[in-house]
Amino acid sequence: MRVDLFDFHLPPENIALRPVSPRHAAKMLLVPAAGDFGHHQVIDLPKLLKAGDCLIFNDTRVIPAQLTGRRGDAVIGATLHKRIDLRRWQAFIRNAKRLKVGDQIDFGQDVRAAAEQRHADGSFTLYFEGDDPVELLLARAGTMPLPPYIAGKRPVDERDLSDYQTMFAQKDGAVAAPTAALHFTPDLTEALDVAGIKTATLTLHVGAGTFLPVKAQDTDDHRMHSEWGSIDAATAGRLNQVRASGGRLIAVGTTSLRLIESAAKDDGTIEPFEGDTDIFITPGYRFKAAGGLMTNFHLPKSTLFMLVSAMMGRERMQAAYAEAIAQNYRFYSYGDSSLLLP
């Protein structure tokens, strides 16, 4: 499909630079398969789902994966994308023309990395030198990797250390937050439990590729970057039991949805999964396991807007986004939410 079919105009003032407080006070647009849209707050979620439904969260934890250093007199920026091994990361490089294989980048705070390999997409494999764990090096020299549409308008600060982390975050490795879950609070999860809504967690370490624009003119020509994910056997069994009992699997965020669809067989059965996925969901895709999606509002012509269009229909989502803009919903990572129920 043509990428420009997924374009829309978003006024800059609709881009959220900070989350609301409390988090569950964010607005939420209910998008059913047909009929009127519903205007709610995230705290209303227990009333919008059914007992026996299951919300699926991503328990990845965002690491301080944004680095700025020097190679000689050149300033080099690095956004870590995907862990290769204990000391190596694939990274997207700013000012990459000034970096070649074999160069050393000094990131300050006694943190240095060697450019070991250049990949076909222009990214590099960085080897972090020394004996300290890379996580400790990043804690010293790295900053939180806020999306460009936020970082381009204000600097990263101490508030982002907590604001850009979900309450479910446990496993280090993400370069971007699974932002749909930023809206959840202990009060909300307690209300969900009382309402009989089940929960489950999986892990998908979100990579920096989620920030990259789609440069192709046709979706067939776009290549997704792979990300590592895991669903253990116990979780897969619980999710299958929910479906067998007539409950819906509601993914909280596109990362959770992409992973359960990667792990699902054609009949919808979810199998344990551990490894990379580069699944690219566009209109025409047949969903195998997911029965709904809670997600924030995404960029024009992005792979994520293509994904929600695949679930609800492109014209339906264009109308939903037009409604959200008209009602002053806040967009992107720190913005408001939507609940898609096909």
Results as ranks from 00 to 15, higher is better:
Ala233Ile: 12
Leu259Asp: 05
Asp276Asn: 15
His222Cys: 09
Asp220Leu: 13
Ala236Thr: 04
Glu261Met: 03
Phe280Val: 04
Asp276Glu: 10
Asp220His: 13
Leu293Gln: 08
Thr269Tyr: 04
Ile281Asn: 03
Leu259Asn: 05
Pro213Leu: 00
Ala236Arg: 04
Ala289Pro: 01
Leu293Tyr: 07
Gly275Asn: 12
Ala244Cys: 05
Lys265Arg: 14
Thr235Arg: 00
Ala263Gly: 15
Tyr285Ile: 11
Thr269His: 14
Ile279Gly: 04
Ala264Arg: 03
Leu293Thr: 12
Thr282Cys: 14
Ala290Val: 14
Lys288Val: 06
Ser262His: 07
Ser262Ile: 00
Thr269Ala: 01
Pro283Val: 09
Val214Asp: 13
Thr235Gln: 02
Phe273Val: 02
Lys215Gln: 15
Ser262Leu: 01
Thr269Arg: 11
Phe273His: 09
Trp228Gln: 13
Leu249Ala: 01
Gln217Ser: 13
Arg258Pro: 07
Lys288Leu: 09
Arg238Val: 13
Ser230His: 15
Ile260Thr: 00
Asp221Thr: 05
Thr255Ala: 09
Arg243Ile: 10
Asp278Ser: 13
Leu257Thr: 04
Gly284Val: 08
Phe297Cys: 02
Ser256Trp: 00
Glu227Pro: 04
Ala264Asp: 09
Leu257Ala: 08
Thr295Ile: 11
Gly292Ser: 02
Thr219Ile: 11
Val214Gly: 15
Trp228Val: 11
Val242Lys: 00
Gln241Ser: 11
Ser226Met: 05
Leu293Gly: 09
Arg258Val: 01
Asn296Gln: 07
Glu271Gly: 06
Thr282Tyr: 15
Ala263Asp: 06
Ala233Tyr: 06
Glu271Ile: 12
Thr254Asp: 07
Val242Phe: 00
Ser256Asp: 06
Asp266Cys: 08
Leu257Arg: 07
Ser245Gly: 12
Gly237Ile: 02
Leu239Ala: 01
Arg286Ser: 13
Ile231Cys: 05
Ser262Cys: 05
Asp278Trp: 08
Gln241Glu: 14
Pro272Gly: 13
Arg248Gly: 14
Gly253Tyr: 02
Pro283Ser: 15
Met224His: 15
Glu227Gly: 02
Ala234Ser: 10
Arg223Val: 14
Ala290Cys: 11
Gly246Ser: 08
Asp267Glu: 02
Tyr285Lys: 01
Thr254Asn: 03
Val214Trp: 12
Gln217Glu: 14
Pro283Ala: 15
Asp232Lys: 06
Thr255Asp: 05
Asp218Lys: 11
Ser226Lys: 12
His222Asp: 09
Ile260Glu: 00
His225Gly: 15
Tyr285Trp: 14
Gly253Leu: 07
Gly237Cys: 04
Asn296Lys: 07
Gly284Met: 12
Met224Val: 15
Met224Trp: 03
Ile250Gly: 01
Phe287Trp: 10
Asp267Ser: 00
Ala234Asp: 12
Asp232Pro: 02
Arg286Gln: 12
His225Arg: 11
Ala244Gly: 00
Gly268Arg: 07
Glu274Lys: 10
Glu227Asn: 08
Ala234Thr: 15
Ala236Tyr: 00
Ile270Arg: 01
Trp228Ala: 13
Gln241His: 14
Arg248His: 09
Glu261Trp: 06
Ala234Arg: 12
Asp232Glu: 11
Glu261Tyr: 06
Asp218Arg: 10
Gln241Phe: 04
Phe280Lys: 06
Gly291Lys: 02
Pro272Asp: 11
Gly284Phe: 07
Leu293Arg: 09
Glu227Met: 09
His222Ala: 12
Val214Leu: 10
Ile250Phe: 03
Gln217Asp: 12
Phe297Lys: 01
Lys265Met: 12
Phe280Ala: 00
Gly292Ala: 03
